[in-house]
Protein backbone atom coordinates (compact mmCIF):
# COMPACT_ATOMS: atom_id res chain seq x y z
CA UNK A 1 0.00 0.00 0.00
CA UNK A 2 1.28 3.44 -0.99
CA UNK A 3 2.04 5.88 1.78
CA UNK A 4 0.80 9.44 1.29
CA UNK A 5 2.27 12.56 2.88
CA UNK A 6 0.95 16.04 3.42
CA UNK A 7 2.87 18.70 1.43
CA UNK A 8 1.95 22.28 2.31
CA UNK A 9 2.59 25.13 -0.14
CA UNK A 10 3.31 27.88 2.37
CA UNK A 11 3.34 30.78 -0.11
CA UNK A 12 0.18 29.58 -1.87
CA UNK A 13 -2.04 30.34 1.11
CA UNK A 14 -0.81 27.16 2.76
CA UNK A 15 -2.70 24.92 0.34
CA UNK A 16 -2.27 21.28 1.38
CA UNK A 17 -1.49 18.53 -1.14
CA UNK A 18 -1.73 14.80 -0.50
CA UNK A 19 1.27 13.37 -2.30
CA UNK A 20 2.05 9.68 -2.65
CA UNK A 21 5.58 8.63 -1.74
CA UNK A 22 6.28 7.76 -5.41
CA UNK A 23 4.65 10.82 -6.96
CA UNK A 24 6.59 13.95 -7.95
CA UNK A 25 5.31 16.98 -6.04
CA UNK A 26 4.96 18.91 -9.31
CA UNK A 27 2.53 16.29 -10.64
CA UNK A 28 0.52 16.32 -7.41
CA UNK A 29 0.20 20.11 -7.55
CA UNK A 30 -0.91 19.96 -11.19
CA UNK A 31 -3.48 17.32 -10.28
CA UNK A 32 -4.81 19.81 -7.72
CA UNK A 33 -5.07 22.47 -10.43
CA UNK A 34 -1.95 24.40 -9.43
CA UNK A 35 0.42 25.19 -12.33
CA UNK A 36 3.94 25.52 -10.96
CA UNK A 37 7.07 26.27 -13.04
CA UNK A 38 8.14 23.29 -15.15
CA UNK A 39 10.35 22.59 -18.15
CA UNK A 40 12.53 19.49 -18.66
CA UNK A 41 10.50 17.32 -16.25
CA UNK A 42 13.45 15.02 -15.49
CA UNK A 43 15.51 16.92 -12.91
CA UNK A 44 18.06 18.40 -15.33
CA UNK A 45 17.13 22.05 -15.71
CA UNK A 46 16.35 24.02 -12.46
CA UNK A 47 13.16 25.71 -13.78
CA UNK A 48 10.94 23.88 -11.23
CA UNK A 49 13.15 24.65 -8.21
CA UNK A 50 11.37 25.31 -4.90
CA UNK A 51 12.48 25.88 -1.32
CA UNK A 52 12.02 23.14 1.25
CA UNK A 53 11.13 24.78 4.58
CA UNK A 54 10.60 21.61 6.63
CA UNK A 55 10.62 17.92 5.79
CA UNK A 56 12.59 15.69 3.46
CA UNK A 57 12.31 14.53 -0.13
CA UNK A 58 14.12 12.09 -2.39
CA UNK A 59 15.00 13.26 -5.91
CA UNK A 60 15.85 10.35 -8.20
CA UNK A 61 17.79 11.54 -11.28
CA UNK A 62 17.81 15.17 -10.11
CA UNK A 63 21.09 16.73 -11.29
CA UNK A 64 20.36 20.44 -11.73
CA UNK A 65 21.27 21.72 -8.26
CA UNK A 66 24.83 22.29 -7.10
CA UNK A 67 25.98 21.81 -3.53
CA UNK A 68 25.36 25.43 -2.54
CA UNK A 69 21.81 25.35 -3.87
CA UNK A 70 21.02 22.04 -2.20
CA UNK A 71 22.48 23.22 1.10
CA UNK A 72 20.30 26.32 0.87
CA UNK A 73 17.26 24.04 0.78
CA UNK A 74 16.34 24.09 -2.90
CA UNK A 75 14.71 21.02 -4.41
CA UNK A 76 13.43 20.08 -7.89
CA UNK A 77 9.68 19.55 -7.83
CA UNK A 78 9.56 17.60 -11.11
CA UNK A 79 11.43 14.72 -9.46
CA UNK A 80 11.06 15.37 -5.71
CA UNK A 81 8.99 12.76 -3.84
CA UNK A 82 8.14 13.35 -0.17
CA UNK A 83 9.52 10.98 2.46
CA UNK A 84 7.56 12.71 5.24
CA UNK A 85 5.18 15.65 5.62
CA UNK A 86 6.79 18.78 4.07
CA UNK A 87 6.33 22.53 3.93
CA UNK A 88 7.51 24.33 0.78
CA UNK A 89 7.74 27.77 -0.77
CA UNK A 90 7.17 27.41 -4.51
CA UNK A 91 7.38 29.36 -7.75
CA UNK A 92 9.87 31.98 -8.88
CA UNK A 93 9.13 33.90 -5.65
CA UNK A 94 10.99 31.16 -3.78
CA UNK A 95 14.13 31.56 -5.93
CA UNK A 96 15.85 34.27 -3.92
CA UNK A 97 19.48 33.17 -3.61
CA UNK A 98 19.08 30.40 -6.20
CA UNK A 99 21.02 32.17 -8.95
CA UNK A 100 24.36 33.93 -8.61
CA UNK A 101 26.50 35.86 -11.06
CA UNK A 102 29.48 33.49 -11.26
CA UNK A 103 31.98 36.27 -11.89
CA UNK A 104 30.80 38.22 -8.85
CA UNK A 105 31.23 35.24 -6.52
CA UNK A 106 34.36 33.63 -7.98
CA UNK A 107 36.92 32.99 -5.27
CA UNK A 108 34.15 33.06 -2.69
CA UNK A 109 32.38 29.91 -3.68
CA UNK A 110 29.80 29.50 -0.98
CA UNK A 111 28.89 32.83 0.59
CA UNK A 112 26.06 32.91 3.12
CA UNK A 113 22.76 32.68 1.33
CA UNK A 114 21.35 36.12 0.59
Amino acid sequence: MTTTYRVTLRNRNGVPLDVAEDEPIYAAALRAGIQLPIACNYGGCITCAAKLITGHVRQPKGTALNRRQSQAGFILLCVARPTCDCVLDVGVESHRGLYQNPFAIAGNRYPPDA
Binding site: A39, G44, C45, I46, T63, A64, N66, Y99, P102, F103
Partner: peptide
Amino acid sequence: PNTFMPGFDLE
Protein backbone atom coordinates in the same frame (compact mmCIF):
# COMPACT_ATOMS: atom_id res chain seq x y z
CA PRO B 1 22.04 20.32 -21.41
CA ASN B 2 22.38 19.05 -17.84
CA THR B 3 25.39 21.39 -17.46
CA PHE B 4 24.14 24.63 -19.04
CA MET B 5 20.41 24.40 -18.30
CA PRO B 6 20.68 25.04 -14.54
CA GLY B 7 22.96 28.06 -15.06
CA PHE B 8 26.58 28.98 -15.67
CA ASP B 9 29.05 27.77 -13.03
CA LEU B 10 32.77 28.51 -13.32
CA GLU B 11 33.40 25.27 -11.48
